[in-house]
Simulated assay, not measured.
Amino acid sequence: MLAAYAARTDAENPLSALEVGEIEPGETPADWVTVRMRASSLNHHDIWSLRGVGLPADRLPMILGCDGVGETEDGRIVVLHAVIPSAGWTGDETLDPKRSLLSERYPGTLAEQVRVPAGNLVALPEGMPIEHAACVSTSWLTAFRMLFVQSGVRPGDTVLVQGAGGGVATAAVQLGSAAGLRMFVTSRDEARGAKAVELGAEAAFASGERLPQRVDAVLETVGAATWSHSVKSLKPGGTIVIAGATSGDAPPAELTRIFFQQMRVQGSTMGTRTELQQLLSFMASRRIEPVIDSVRPLSQARDAFERMESGEVFGKLVLTV
């Protein structure tokens, strides 16, 4: 079948490890179900996989992709939940120490078909375009959990999102503004900040710029480059929710400020299947449409990867089958 996959890994030149072509599906447990893919989207996780992060040589070749929408053998259109718990795990699958994502241990969604546990399928809401639903299972679900599960904010509260333009940041702005939150963003790129305001942010600021007021929560995915600003921008008793550290993970800890002002630092990873259902329902009811940078057929996956690596993307890169 046609797929985009890591044929090898290359830490310095990840796209040299990418192949788009025919490949035999990888092995999966016998009780999993087959889904014929209709659309999928790229995440930076795919680039990290091509670099070899979380993808050892003994799992190659590996079909990439975490997000996607497809059709089951009985004709249902479903959204795929990418978090795969270990056998026998019950409860919040994001807390399973042996969990994985599609494309880490088992083949991913950038293919004509994929096999997943039956419990990882969520019905596509009526009227939601498949291209929109294909965007949500990773970055949108991460943003949803950060905002509505981990941060403790309520409508009317103010939230700072570090790094406007990234997939999680863009989703957080759209979700937060739709829920009645006052969303601030920072960006090194003035144009990206302006786009975030168009999507619902109340204001955009330069990276490190002092805010007009302290915020109730900060959504942090950047790490070392923005950590001190995140701590200084937070109200006493507020919460910093961390779901990534793209600029590094060893900033000064600011421990004195954190304990003295009784701030909370909360980690967050992906989301549960139940939260994916809630996210889809919320998006459908509020008619929230993910920002899509471009849509291409799966056969042109390399073009999409090149655009992602260029850093010029604003929104999701969608591939259709």
Rank of each mutant, 00 (worst) to 15 (best):
L175Q: 00
I23R: 03
T186Q: 00
T142A: 09
L102Y: 05
P61H: 09
P61R: 07
G54S: 12
A204H: 11
A191S: 13
S285H: 12
I242D: 02
D74R: 06
T9H: 10
L279V: 07
G21L: 03
E24H: 02
G167A: 10
V136D: 04
S139R: 00
L175V: 01
E126A: 15
I63P: 07
L80G: 07
P297Y: 02
T142L: 05
E209F: 06
G156M: 10
W89C: 13
L110T: 01
I84T: 10
R273S: 01
D293P: 01
R302Q: 13
M146F: 01
C135G: 02
Q262I: 05
I47Q: 05
L15F: 05
A87R: 14
E27K: 14
Q262R: 14
A304D: 06
V295S: 06
V222Q: 08
T274L: 14
G166M: 14
P107C: 09
A4G: 06
D249C: 11
L18R: 05
G88D: 07
R257A: 14
M283L: 04
L60R: 07
A224C: 09
A201N: 05
L102K: 02
L276H: 09
S207N: 12
G108W: 04
G152P: 12
A111I: 13
D96A: 04
R302G: 11
P107V: 11
R264Q: 13
V197F: 11
R210A: 15
A6E: 06
I242A: 06
G223M: 08
T170H: 09
V318H: 00
S41Y: 00
T226Q: 10
V185G: 08
T142W: 03
G237V: 01
V83L: 14
P252L: 03
L211E: 04
G244P: 06
P290W: 00
S40L: 10
S16L: 12
T28R: 12
M270Q: 15
G75S: 11
A11M: 08
E12L: 14
L95N: 14
A6M: 05
A169W: 00
E312R: 13
V295A: 07
S139G: 01
G223F: 05
R307T: 12
A224H: 08
T221W: 05
T72R: 07
E309A: 14
S247E: 03
P85V: 13
Q213V: 09
W48H: 14
G248H: 07
Q266C: 15
G54P: 12
T256D: 13
